[in-house]
């Protein structure tokens, strides 16, 4: 087990998937890799019986790297729960056929050659859904290490060298000007990850407005003060709240998917609220 990066690889127009796989194979063989068999990952999805209430989906995955295991993810609206089981789990899914039925037309497979190059293992997968070609996924694993942060640079370089692919990662978040004095002004665009969250709604007394500052901490999450976000009306928070980030201050209003106040707010010194954005923020 190491650190793995999974990355879609674009298939140029008027080129086939097979062509791209061959090209990538040539490239990686030229670097000195050797082919070590083929791999296959498949995923079948099962939908719950309509009479069981809200639809839940059970995804059953197999990976030829772990041939005795079955990976299962249960998707139920808000939660994703995963379980790793031995091969007999497939038989249990057959027993559950009254409750969960397979959606055959969405069976997805990713298969192709598997290469080893020193400490790296590279898999070039052609992805098909119900036998129709959908795209190419490259999987690169660096096997001696399990700490993602420690090998990120290495993996990125490896991917660029071998496949010409680039890993997307937000490169902001490094404060280069620690000399900012509290209370003084800085140019608006200095900190692209700082922004505001505002709420504009209506109640019986008229328009209600509230605004607070937030900080982007990950591609789809901002944090803000629970003392400001907590009192904002809950019933239409998602509908009436927008986030604007300092990334250029283009005024792009980001919608909110969900938010949560720290469970210990009011009891301990934890006074933050976590807000999930509807879409992932791309750096520019």
């Amino acid at each position: 087990m190491g650190v793995t990066v999974l990355q879609p690889y674009p298939v140029p127009e008027n080129k086939t998937g097979t062509y791209v796989i061959e090209l990538l194979t040539k490239r990686i063989l030229a670097l000195g890799a050797s082919q070590q068999g083929q791999f296959l990952v498949d995923c079948e999805s099962y939908l719950s019986h309509p009479q069981m209430g809200t639809t839940k989906t059970v995804h059953i995955l197999h990976n030829s790297e772990q041939p005795a295991s079955v990976f299962s993810i249960l998707e139920s609206g808000t939660k994703n729960i995963h379980v790793i089981a031995d091969g007999l789990f497939d038989l249990l899914m057959m027993k559950l056929s009254q409750h969960y039925t397979s959606k055959k037309q969405t069976k997805i497979e990713s298969k192709g050659p598997r290469f080893e190059l020193g400490d790296f293992c590279v898999k070039l997968g052609s992805v098909t859904m119900n036998q129709n070609f959908k795209g190419i996924l490259i999987e690169v694993e660096y096997r001696p290490c399990v700490m993602a942060n420690a090998v990120w640079g290495l993996l990125r370089e490896f991917l660029q060298d071998t496949n010409g692919a680039t890993l997307e990662r937000m490169e902001c978040g490094i404060d280069n000007s620690p000399e900012v004095v509290v209370g003084s002004d800085v140019p608006l665009n200095t900190y692209p990850w700082v922004g505001i969250l505002y709420y504009i709604g209506h109640d019986l007394t008229g328009e209600v407005r509230a605004v607070t500052t937030v900080v982007l901490i990950q591609q789809e999450f901002v944090i803000g003060p629970a003392a400001d976000i907590g009192p904002m009306p809950k019933h239409d928070f998602r509908k009436n709240t927008r986030v604007i980030l300092g990334d250029g201050w283009r005024g792009e209003e980001l919608r909110v998917r969900n938010y949560v106040i720290h469970p210990e707010y009011g009891e301990t010194l934890n006074t933050v609220a976590l807000v999930q954005l509807k879409n992932i923020v791309r750096s520019s």
Partner: peptide
């Protein structure tokens, strides 16, 4: 008999 790891109890609860 199936050996499982992960959040099996939650999994079964959500399964119905």
């Amino acid at each position: 008999d199936i050996a499982c790891s992960g959040m099996l109890i939650e999994f079964l609860n959500e399964l119905g």
